[in-house]
Amino acid sequence: MFPKPIAQSGPWTQRAYKTLLPIALVLWLLPLIGIAITSIRPGSDLASGNYFGMPSGFAGWENYSSVFKNSNIGYYILNSFRVTIPTVIGAVGLSCLTGYALAVYKFKGNLAVFFMFVAGNFVPFQILAIPVRDLTLHMGLYNTMTGLVLFHIAFQTGFCTLFMRNFMKALPFALIESARVEGVSEFRIFWHIILPLVRPAMAALAVLIFTFIWNDYFWATVMAQSVDVRPVTAGMNELKGQYKVAWELISAAAIVAALPPVAMFFLMQKHFIAGLTLGATKG
C-alpha cells in the first residue's frame, strides 16, 4: 500500500493525520458549506451584512418553501425527472444490444463500429447543435420532452456502448458457446443468459447517466424553451435572474436542484464509482 499506512507511524503522526482530515474536508467543501448555511439564513442577515457569522435564526423553512411557492422550480424538477428517466431506460437498453453485438460476435467492421461510438462520444456539443435543433424542429418535436429525450438517448448510447461492450467482453464466453451447441437462438442467449449477468453494469450505467442527464445544461438551454419542458439546470439560471441578490433563496434553490443526483450517488455509491472508474485499473 502506498503511501505507508498511517497505523505504522508514530502516535503523533497518527494524531496529526486524524486532525488534518476534517480540516481538509471543511476547506475542500467550504463553498458548499457556505451556500448551505446561506440557504437557511433569514434574509435580514444578508441585508445587515451578516454573511459569514452565525445565522441570527433558522429560516430554512421559510426560504425553501418560498422558493417552491414563488418560482417554477417544482415544475423544473419534475421536468428533469421526465427527461432523465426515459433517457436512462433508452440509453441503457440500446447499449445492452449494441454492447452485446460488439462484445460477442466477430464480424468485419466490429472495431470500426465500436470506435464510431467511442469517438462520437467525445465530440463538442456545438458541432451537433444546429443540425440537431433543426432536425428536432422539422420532426415537430422542438421544445418537447420527446425531442430532448431522443437526442440524449442517441448521444449517451455512445458512452454506454463503450461501457457495456467492455463489461460483456469479460464474461465467460464458454457459456454462450455451450448454449449455441444446444441450439439456443441468438436472441434467447442474449435475453436469458447475458442480460441477467450484466445487471451490475446496467445499475452502474443507470446512476451515471442519471447524473449526466440531470446535470445537463447545454441541451436543456438549446432544446427547451417553456416552463413545462425546461429542466432544472436551465431553470436555475433563470431563477438567478429573478432573485438577483436574494442569495438565501438562490442558495436554497441550488441545494434543491443538486439533491437528486447527490441522493442517487449516496444510495448507489458502489455502482457509481465502479462505472466512473471502469478502465482506471487495467489497459
Binding site: 447499449s95 452485446y100 440537431v132 432536425l135 442517441a154
Partner: peptide, 22 residues
C-alpha cells in the same frame, strides 16, 4: 446477421443524431 439486428437501433440513432450532424 444477428449482430446487425442487435446493433441496428443504436447505430441508426447514433448516425442520425451524432455522426450525420457533424
Amino acid at each position: 446477421l444477428a449482430p446487425w439486428f442487435f446493433m441496428a437501433p443504436g447505430i441508426i440513432m447514433f448516425l442520425v443524431y451524432v455522426i450525420y450532424p457533424i
